[in-house]
Simulated assay, not measured.
Amino acid sequence: MAYSVTLLSWSLLAYPNGYQTTGQTDYARAAIKWGTDYFLKAHTALDVLWGQVGDGGADHAYWGRPEDMDIDRPSDKIDSQEPGSDLAGETAAALAAASIVFQDVDSSYSSELLQAAKELYELADNYRDFYYNAIGGASGYYLSSNWQDELVWGALWLYRATGDETYLTKGKEYIEEFGFLGIQYGWTYNFDWDDKRAGCYRNLRPLLAEIDGSDLYRETLRNYTIYLRNDQQKTPLGLVYIMQWGTLRHANNVGFIALRAAELGLDTDENVAFAKTQIDYTLGSTGRSYMVGFGVNPPVRPHHRAASCPYPPDTCDWAQESTTDPNPHVLYGAMVGGPDQNDQFNDDRNDYTHNEVADDYNAALTGVLAYFVQNNSQ
């Protein structure tokens, strides 16, 4: 959720006219504030952040309306005794990015967000560990691969929000400290909720390239996008294929990064064309749309509990999960996981690998759409 808020804020800051033209600015701010209000409430003390409500096993064993759920909902937190640098660092980034969004809209709220961002970044930086060691239930569902990327990511967003050179210096120093500067092999090409390295360091440094503008950061960003365009695996119909979970998410995530590179004057035409092929694929250029409620032959059975439930008082249970009937409710705008490496896709509610939806799936996608609206691309 924190990653999604960060990305939505980034896209609103990067492409404000895209949102304004489509009348989506207020909706975007409301979506961001929904998340940041939650984070503020979850930050109950200087060094405390409540990071999970619920139990993954119990939650997945329930199929029904969320408002009907009455099972136990245990809560878990991170703090200075049981830290979580990845969770605290990403939440700090989300709050810092959102503080910029609200700077000229609600200065008091913006200041509140920024203060919380600073506090959570201190928690992330001063007490370092994986968050799932404190919140054990997360390890089976949202296992974090590293926490170093969130320290850099959070520092860069705090620099953008504050202009305080301390954060920029810290971000640069951590790139070297964690051993990713100058690595030529073993690159990571995904960019998602778990791995921000493609967003700030190791191979791709769009934030640093935007902030610093040095040849080093620009060139590594350019090399990253060259690899994506020319060497990363693609499906026969042209979707960049990074991993089986959320194929379209990853394609549009890196598409967003390519557009940020284009905005910096790095292979502008090539990067825009690359991002456009990915969003066009998502919206139906190959014969079917993967966005629910939009375009030709969109998914009608996304793996989503609430959308699959009929209106009450009709029962909603596992029978709704297994039926082949379309969902009673159209989950407008949600992008499903997407096809496999051979462009094969079945609109099957049971196939959560390819037909699941999630807020982070749509996070960077929204920015890609805003770019093309803002730049009047067809």
Rank of each mutant, 00 (worst) to 15 (best):
Q233H: 13
R222V: 08
N252A: 04
T247G: 01
L228I: 09
L208C: 10
D231V: 12
L239M: 13
L204F: 13
E210V: 05
I211Y: 05
A251S: 10
M243E: 14
L208E: 04
T247S: 14
Q233I: 11
R218N: 10
A251E: 03
L221M: 14
S214T: 06
H250M: 12
L216M: 13
G213Y: 09
D215C: 08
Y201E: 14
E210G: 11
E210N: 07
M243C: 14
N252M: 15
G238S: 06
P206N: 08
D212V: 13
N223L: 12
L248A: 00
L248R: 00
L204T: 15
V240R: 00
R249E: 05
G199A: 01
G213F: 07
D212T: 11
T235L: 04
R205P: 09
Q244R: 13
D231H: 12
T235F: 10
G199C: 04
D212Y: 03
P236V: 03
G246Q: 05
G199R: 03
R202S: 08
A251F: 00
G246A: 12
I242P: 00
S214E: 06
C200R: 02
Y241M: 13
L208Q: 08
Y241L: 09
P236K: 10
L228M: 08
L208K: 00
N253A: 09
S214G: 01
W245V: 09
N230A: 13
A209F: 08
R205N: 12
Y224G: 02
I226K: 10
L204G: 12
R218M: 11
Y241H: 12
Q232Y: 08
L208D: 04
Y241D: 06
E219P: 08
G199F: 02
H250I: 05
I242T: 01
N252F: 01
R229E: 09
Y217H: 07
T235P: 06
W245H: 11
P236Q: 07
G238L: 09
A251G: 04
A209Y: 00
N230F: 08
A251M: 04
L208F: 04
L207Q: 02
Q232A: 14
Y241I: 03
D212M: 05
L239I: 09
Q232R: 12
T235K: 04
A209Q: 03
I242G: 00
N223C: 11
G238W: 06
W245M: 07
D215P: 05
R222W: 04
L221V: 07
R222E: 07
V240N: 06
V240D: 01
E219D: 14
H250D: 11
S214C: 09
H250A: 10
R202D: 07
W245N: 03
Y201C: 14
L237Q: 13
Q244M: 15
R202G: 06
R229I: 09
G246V: 06
Y241T: 06
G238R: 05
R202I: 07
Y241R: 08
N223G: 15
L228Y: 03
S214N: 01
M243S: 14
